[in-house]
Amino acid sequence: MHDLFYLSDPGEVAMAQDLIREFGEDAGFEAAERADHSRTVGNYLHFCRWRQIERLILVLGNPVAVGTIH
């Protein structure tokens, strides 16, 4: 699972939760739009962060477990 995304700050999980709460099933699209906007304005750090949050949202929304199950 660690190969799917990298989160540098636990606050990014909270950001993903906020997007899911606000946008529901469209939360991944919202994160992608924020990433695209960040890239457009030349902010590659925020671009990378939003892409990782987008990936986290996709994993959280997946009904099938990802990675090792104990």
Rank of each mutant, 00 (worst) to 15 (best):
H2C: 03
L45R: 13
F29C: 02
H2D: 09
D3G: 12
I69E: 08
G67L: 08
I69W: 11
H46D: 07
H2E: 12
V13F: 07
T40K: 13
I57N: 00
L7W: 08
L4K: 15
L58K: 13
P10G: 08
F23C: 06
M15S: 13
P10A: 09
D36P: 01
L4S: 12
G24P: 02
H2Q: 13
Y6L: 08
D9E: 09
P63K: 03
Y44M: 14
L19E: 02
P63C: 02
H2R: 11
P63W: 04
L19R: 04
P63I: 05
M1Y: 14
Q17A: 04
L4V: 14
M15G: 06
Y44F: 13
A27S: 12
A27P: 02
C48I: 09
D36H: 09
L60D: 06
I57L: 01
I53A: 01
S38T: 13
D26N: 10
E12A: 08
L7Q: 11
D9M: 10
R49N: 01
D26W: 03
A35N: 06
H2Y: 14
G28N: 04
E12T: 14
D36Q: 12
R55I: 00
G24V: 05
D9P: 05
H46M: 03
T40E: 14
N43P: 01
E54Q: 14
V59P: 00
A35F: 05
N43F: 07
S8M: 09
M15I: 13
E30C: 07
F47H: 11
R49Y: 01
A14W: 13
G28P: 00
A35H: 02
D3M: 14
V41H: 10
R21S: 05
R51C: 03
D18C: 04
R51D: 00
V41R: 15
D9H: 15
G67M: 08
L7C: 10
L19G: 02
H70T: 12
E54H: 13
Q17D: 09
L4P: 01
R21W: 00
Q17E: 10
L58G: 02
H37G: 01
V66F: 04
A27K: 06
R39H: 11
V64L: 02
P10H: 11
H70G: 05
L4G: 11
Y44T: 14
R34K: 15
E54V: 06
V13R: 11
I57G: 00
F29R: 12
I53T: 04
V41E: 13
N62I: 12
L58A: 10
D3H: 15
G42S: 14
G61P: 01
W50A: 01
D36W: 09
L60F: 12
F47W: 10
D3P: 02
G67A: 05
L4A: 15
A16P: 01
I53K: 03
R49C: 00
V41D: 11
I20S: 02
L45M: 06
E33F: 02
G42D: 12
V64Q: 06
G67N: 06
Y44R: 14
L45F: 10
Y44L: 14
W50P: 00
E33Q: 06
C48H: 11
H46V: 03
F23V: 07
L7Y: 10
D26A: 08
S38G: 10
A31S: 11
Q52C: 05
